[in-house]
Amino acid sequence: MGHIPEWMKLIDERILEYLDENGASFPFEISSDLSMTAPRNRVRRRCWVLVNAEFAVPMREKLAHERYAIKFDIADRGGDYLDGEFDASLIQPLPAPRPPHATRPGWWAGFG
Rank of each mutant, 00 (worst) to 15 (best):
R67H: 03
R67S: 03
R67M: 02
Y68N: 07
Y68W: 11
Y68M: 06
A69R: 11
A69H: 00
A69N: 07
A69F: 00
I70Y: 07
I70W: 09
I70K: 08
I70A: 08
I70R: 09
K71C: 09
F72K: 05
F72V: 07
F72G: 01
F72E: 05
D73V: 10
D73L: 10
D73E: 10
D73Y: 01
I74M: 02
I74A: 00
I74Y: 05
I74T: 04
I74R: 08
A75L: 07
A75C: 07
A75E: 13
A75P: 08
D76F: 11
D76T: 11
D76Q: 14
D76L: 14
R77N: 14
R77L: 13
R77W: 08
G78Y: 12
G78C: 07
G78D: 07
G78R: 04
G78A: 01
G79F: 07
G79I: 03
D80V: 03
Y81D: 13
Y81H: 14
L82Y: 08
L82Q: 10
L82K: 05
L82I: 05
L82F: 02
D83N: 06
D83I: 04
D83M: 08
G84P: 12
G84F: 08
G84K: 11
G84N: 13
G84L: 12
E85P: 02
E85A: 15
E85M: 11
E85H: 12
E85L: 15
F86K: 15
F86R: 15
F86Y: 15
D87T: 09
D87E: 12
D87P: 00
D87N: 11
D87K: 08
D87M: 08
D87I: 14
A88I: 03
A88G: 01
A88Q: 04
A88H: 04
A88P: 04
S89E: 06
S89C: 03
S89V: 01
S89P: 03
S89W: 01
L90Y: 08
L90E: 15
I91Q: 05
I91E: 07
I91D: 04
I91F: 05
I91T: 03
Q92L: 01
Q92V: 02
P93N: 13
P93W: 11
L94Y: 01
L94R: 01
P95Q: 13
P95S: 11
A96D: 14
A96P: 00
A96S: 14
A96L: 14
A96W: 10
P97D: 10
P97L: 06
P97E: 09
P97Y: 04
P97W: 06
P97C: 05
P97N: 08
